[in-house]
Design a protein around this nucleic acid. Structure first.
Ligand SMILES: [Zn+2]
Ligand SMILES: [Zn+2]
Ligand SMILES: [Zn+2]
Ligand SMILES: [Zn+2]
Lengths: 144, 144
DNA sequence: ATACACCTTTGACTTAACTCCAAGGTCAAT
DNA sequence: ATTGACCTTGGAGTTAAGTCAAAGGTGTAT
C-alpha cells in the first residue's frame, strides 16, 4: 500500500497529478485508511504506469481512459478496438506532423533568404515576404 | 476605411478576433467614428494581413508582436534581429517535430504488431506493450 | 416609426493537463 | 505537548487563441 506521496515519488509525478487523475476517473485508489488517506495497491501502481507509458506514446488522457476501459475488460473487447484507437491517434499525429513540416519549410525558406547581418532591416527579405501577398521570397534585392 | 465587420469579412476572420488582437496590442484601428465605431485603414489591413501570414508560417501571437515591433521600426533593427526570431522559431518547430516523430514511430510499432482482428484483446500486443515495463513489442505470442 | 443589421462594452467560457493555494486533520518523534 | 511532515478538501490559476453572450447604442431603409 502506497500513500499518495509515496506513489507520486515512486512514479516521479506530482501528487496533485494523482488527485487530478482521480477526479478524471483515470485512477482511483483501491481504498482509504481510517483517517481518509488514499491507499494505492501494487495494481493501482501498475495502472498508473500504464497511463504514464500511454502518455509517453502520445495519447491524451481521454484516449488513455478509453484504453483503460478496454484493459479492464479485455475479454469482451477485440484487437480491432485497440488497434482502431492506435490508428486514429496515429492519424492525428501524422496530421500535426504534416502541419509542422509545412511550418518548418516556410521558416527555413525565410531563414535561408535573410543574410542575418547587422544591416538595417529595411530590405530584409523575411519582412518583405510577410508584407507581400505572395509567399515568395525574393532573393535579388536584399541589400544593394 | 473599414468598419470592424467589413475588415473581418475581407480577411475572413471573426470580428471578435479583431477585438482580441486590439486588446493584445497587435492591431489597433487608426481611428474611431463619431459614434465610436472602429475604423481601419488600408494600412491597418496590411498589418492584419502581415499577422495572418505570420500565423500561417507558424508564429504565435506574441512572436508576431515582436515581428511587428521590428516592422514598424525597420531602420533601427537589423536583419540579424529578424533572422534570430525566425531561427528560434524554427528550432522550436523542429523540437516539436522530433517529439511527434517519436510518437509516430511508437504508434506505428504498436499498430504494426497488432492483428486488428475480432479476436479477444486478451493477448493484444498493444495492451501488453503498455502493461509491460519495457517498450518492446513482442510479436511471438499474439494469439496462439 | 420601426425593423434590422451593425456596432459598442464588459466579462465569462472553451481545451488540456496540470499546478498551486488555503485551511485544516493525522501521525510519529521528540 | 508541540513540531513537522504528510494528508484531506474545495477551489482558483495557468497558457493560447479565440469565441460567445448580454445589454444597449447607431444607421439606414421602408
Ligand atoms: Zn540582410
Ligand atoms: Zn533579413
Ligand atoms: Zn490480435
Ligand atoms: Zn491486438
Amino acid at each position: 500500500m502506497y500513500r499518495i506521496g509515496e506513489l507520486a515519488k515512486a512514479c516521479n509525478i506530482n501528487h496533485d497529478t494523482l488527485r487530478f487523475y482521480e477526479k478524471n476517473a483515470l485512477l482511483t485508489p483501491s481504498s482509504r485508511s481510517e483517517s481518509g488517506y488514499r491507499l494505492y495497491t501494487e495494481k493501482d501502481k501498475d495502472i498508473l504506469e500504464f497511463i504514464l507509458r500511454a502518455k509517453n506514446v502520445g495519447f491524451t488522457l481521454s484516449e488513455i481512459k478509453e484504453l483503460l476501459s478496454i484493459e479492464v475488460d479485455k475479454a469482451n473487447n477485440a484487437c480491432a478496438d485497440v488497434k482502431t484507437l492506435v490508428d486514429t491517434k496515429l492519424q492525428t499525429v501524422e496530421n500535426k506532423l504534416a502541419e509542422l513540416i509545412r511550418f518548418q519549410a516556410s521558416l527555413k525558406r525565410l531563414s535561408d533568404a535573410c543574410c542575418g547581418g547587422e544591416e538595417s532591416a529595411e530590405h530584409c527579405t523575411i519582412l518583405e515576404a510577410l508584407e507581400s501577398d505572395t509567399n515568395a521570397v525574393r532573393h535579388e534585392h536584399h541589400h544593394d
